[in-house]
Design a protein around this nucleic acid. Structure first.
Lengths: 337, 337
DNA sequence: TTGTATGCGTTATCAG
DNA sequence: CTGATAACGCATACAA
């Protein structure tokens, strides 16, 4: 009965309605068309089961109405950083409002890198939002060379300063939360610093130093590779060994703080009684800990929507001045300190 | 100096190399071409900075080499289910091996639904992997009507039984872990059942009932809406109130189990001493808890790669027999029971 | 208001 | 081995 081996096209609907393709296109996209023609065409559309071909439209219009969301190092992102989901949702919401499709791409391997680069440059997307831990990546070079409208979330890309970004003030936030730990009367405050090969890690440590000033003691910072729970356990043990009298800890992430709590527990220290602990991210870790963590809130959803706006504005033709914007990071005070 | 206002095309490179477009296409896609022509063309390619246009290629080839990963209800997925990231990564790895680009789409609102439906039907993707909590969704109808090669992860779609799926045996797994709780000598075993509007929730409860047999007591199941931590706390409190002598609990998810642990702690019960607790998912929750959770392992990565294979096989022209496959779910035994 | 013709960038067919 | 030429499905300037 029905064997739609070939999808119905504008041509088919024109034939079915007894008009020309031009007229059909006009009712599809808006334009002058008589009421009777419109009626006939609309009937024909449902009759033949027309579904527009995006590839053809994109080819013609040089616009796909799609924006890529590129997650570099998704492994560390999805595992270490519980905020990635919220950033995606925030970006999607903003793009959705502007009737753009967000397509999120994952690059894990060299193979992925190459394929994604091709994908980005091929006209399937009009722009890209890049979220990454590291800021040097071949993908960024590709975007830069293609002059693809893009935005960075996290920190400024160091390959092309003209790509706008949105992020948070890691150093300032770290300094602020450490200061309040200090104001709480803690005297021997340490830090579990992580990911010192990334801007975020470096900046959080810098903020910590700044808050402590002359009281800063390099012996009291444990250096761990990742933002994860396991690193937190190890880092806290190291701190405890270095300074048994430690009474305050700034963990570079909530996951690390959770690990620190565990190490503290096994060492028989009470929190926040014996030692105060603060984290960073305000992720799900913060509330699932016992006690719940005082931490720096990351406005993940807004980060995503801001990045989306940055791309959308470029698509509208605006030329953005280089640089980026930092979103506020309120400190949320819970029981751990 | 260079103002590539218009991207270089096959036409340009043909002109630069002094050959025809056909010959260029031949070196691009493989075919007979003389060594000298090939050399000239390859030189021209880098000279003009050619980058292929996917939209045009997709239009011509009727293939985009892209497969959608559609997350329905991403909110509950990203928040409740820590496995979603792993499923994505698994699917991406499999697609990557077959040189297909995975593009993941998020549908949160009615607006999203409509836009994603258009996107899927427009030729930007060759197939789709759908992961969803609920199985009735307009998107599935669209896929079904378009006969888009697809696969479902989670449970069978009830709108179109011809769409293959990959999932786990929720009922069987629940029964198995409950049985071992029982074998451990627990006498008054309860369950915190969640999401009873979804297959997964219903099946886990069914498995629990089956394991208990005549010992099943409806008073000992707490019914909570979501798979999250907060629900676990409330559910456990309810159970404690209903049966103070409870000595075993099967939580419908690890997050719920974590919440239950918290409620147990506040009630002064020891785990696993006074009461044994088991969860479901083997997510990050499981190892962060104190004590760590005994739970049912979900092979998230394999779920993703299997779904990808299911789609890829259809793209190769295979006709899959209706139905699906269930992946094994080993029980991992830790300290909580 | 409507029809016709043209081109978007590719690949494929088919003579040369 | 290579060069014209014709689609793919759509939108649009232009003519009617």
């Amino acid at each position: 009965m029905s064997r739609p081996h070939r999808r119905a096209t504008v041509h088919d609907i024109a034939a079915a309605a007894g008009v020309s393709r031009g007229t059909v296109s006009r009712v599809l996209n808006g334009g002058y068309v008589s009421a009777e023609a419109r009626a006939a065409i609309e009937a024909a559309i449902t009759e033949v089961g027309y579904v527009p071909n995006n590839a053809a439209r994109a080819l013609k219009m040089r616009r796909s109405q799609a924006v890529a969301f590129v997650a570099l190092e998704p492994h560390s992102l999805f595992l270490d950083d519980p905020n990635i989901g919220s950033i995606m949702l925030g970006a999607n919401a903003a793009l959705s409002l502007a009737d753009h499709q967000m397509v999120s791409l994952v690059v894990e391997s060299a193979r992925d890198t190459e394929r994604v680069a091709r994908y980005l440059s091929g006209g399937f997307v009009d722009g890209a939002i890049v979220v990454s831990a590291r800021t040097r990546d071949p993908i960024i070079k590709v975007i830069s060379e293609l002059a693809l409208p893009a935005a960075f979330v996290g920190h400024p890309p160091d390959l092309d300063q003209s790509i706008p970004f949105v992020g948070i003030d890691n150093a300032g936030s770290a300094q602020a939360i450490t200061a309040r730990l200090l104001a709480g009367g803690r005297r021997r405050i340490g830090m579990i610093a992580a990911a010192l090969d990334r801007d975020s890690g470096i900046d959080r440590l810098a903020g910590f130093k700044a808050a402590l000033g002359t009281a800063y003691d390099a012996e009291l910072v444990a250096d761990v590779p990742h933002y994860d729970y396991g690193s937190g356990v190890k880092g806290m043990r190291a701190l405890l060994a270095a300074e048994p009298a430690i009474d305050g800890v700034f963990a570079a992430s909530d996951a690390i703080a959770a690990g620190a709590l565990e190490a503290l527990r096994e060492a028989g220290r009470s929190v926040p009684g014996d030692v105060g602990v603060v984290g960073f991210d305000d992720s799900t870790w913060a509330v699932r800990c016992q006690p719940q963590l005082s931490t720096v809130h990351q406005p993940a959803k807004q980060l995503g929507s801001c990045a989306a706006q940055l791309v959308l504005r470029q698509l509208r033709g605006e030329v953005l001045e280089p640089g980026g914007q930092l979103l506020p990071t309120p400190i949320v005070w819970r029981e751990s300190a």
